[in-house]
Write a protein that binds this DNA or RNA. Sequence first.
DNA 1: ATGTACTTTCAAGAAATTTTGAAACTATTG
DNA 2: CAATAGTTTCAAAATTTCTTGAAAGTACAT
Lengths: 166, 166
Amino acid sequence: MNLPEGKDKFLQSWGALGSSWGVNRTMAQIHALLMIAPQALSAEDIMEELKISRGNANMNLRALIDWGLVFKELKAGERKEFFVAEKDMWKVVKNIIIQRKKKELEPMLKVLDELSSVEGNDPETEEFVRMIKEIKLFSSKADSTLDTLVKADSNWFVGTFMKMIK
Amino acid sequence: MNLPEGKDKFLQSWGALGSSWGVNRTMAQIHALLMIAPQALSAEDIMEELKISRGNANMNLRALIDWGLVFKELKAGERKEFFVAEKDMWKVVKNIIIQRKKKELEPMLKVLDELSSVEGNDPETEEFVRMIKEIKLFSSKADSTLDTLVKADSNWFVGTFMKMIK
DNA sequence: ATGTACTTTCAAGAAATTTTGAAACTATTG
DNA sequence: CAATAGTTTCAAAATTTCTTGAAAGTACAT
């Protein structure tokens, strides 16, 4: 397989993967493109490679920067901005965990807390509260496990953890 | 808070959570509804509680059954089918991991394998292959970690693992 | 074998999400 | 300060995804 084919296949697959993870196709593709780029790319370069509009490129780049997956790079003497991706896969995943934990898991824990105070002694209420508590317990555990995971470093993840759980 | 309010809030939140995980709102809500139900519900019950059409209920129930998150239950003497959810949170998460691993991670590993055979000695190709290999290495590790996690039992997860990583 | 109770399918419509592109904005240069 | 180079915004258009509902299908009961 040659480079243009391979690149295209990678951009397609990464984009599709994004879709099933609630990340829009273009955002995933911009990220993919920057990950395999040997140097920083300009908005222009990205628009051209992915055949997307300026607005689209700009919005998704901004979102990627928010997630800590892409950084702006200013080149001396150049007026325009360039972009580079975080290329350390462990950091990429860590940032995603941090963001999603904050935006999804934590608010859910808050809701579950409120819900466990529902009152009543009919079977429906009892089952409701029982289940909410089970979900809450599980979620809190997931939450602290993720905290630990995020604090841990890559070596630990790929080394110790793997051996330990074998 | 009373039960109808609490229930509604739970259905809404769980539905919203689903959306950010590539699961459609209705599927997540049916799942939520069944998780908190003290007994099995019929398609009819579900349509009514969630105000959705028969077709929608049917399709999403089928998908939930595929994922192993919901089961059909036949009541003696009743012609219609009833549905119950898997209520053990650990099993719920395990099934989701199994399915997504199969549908997303494994195909991606295959693609990455093909891509690492791209040939060329310009910097672009070199960076491409380097990055693909890094992603592949990381993904394989994630893959086997998930395998182990899935084999492990709930007690292990909530007990040993938590203490160990503290 | 006909009627009845229920489930499944799927094309068309509705809704949600994504993308575009042009105008507004900002910063730099001469 | 006017021109230039670039970035940002956002309403409208395009696309994708989800939902509906009615027709077809299935299977049980009489």
